[in-house]
Design a protein around this nucleic acid. Sequence first.
DNA 1: AACGTGACAAGGC
DNA 2: AGCCTTGCCACGT
Length: 117
Amino acid sequence: MNSDSDTKHSRYQLIWQVVRGIPFGQVASYGQVARAAGLARQARLVGYALHHLPAHSDVPWHRVVNAKGKLSFPPHSEQYALQQDLLRAEGIVFIQQTIDLKQFGWQIPSHLDTALF
DNA sequence: AACGTGACAAGGC
DNA sequence: AGCCTTGCCACGT
């Protein structure tokens, strides 16, 4: 248990915690979540963390979409349909399979947004 | 232990 | 407006 200890295991926890903070009816991009978790430029890690999410968790994984406002699943997959259903149930509207981030995108509190550059 | 892959993103052409 | 390249990090072969 040293300073370098928490590097390995806690990153996912950190990411999941941020995702829990996304409000009902809003969405955040992978990159946005990464920044809020203090992991700028590591959007891929967010996708990985969600992929490794245990079933029955209370993490609203469906509120994370890509930077274009689209779902990162194959358009005809069941995963796509599920995520879309969950989002629509929160009032989010899809136009041409795209979510208007201006309208539904989560505005991260500035104190969480670590520009890091 | 090197290599490729992945629920991504930003910049260049 | 698409397609390619590079950055980034964890994981399975």
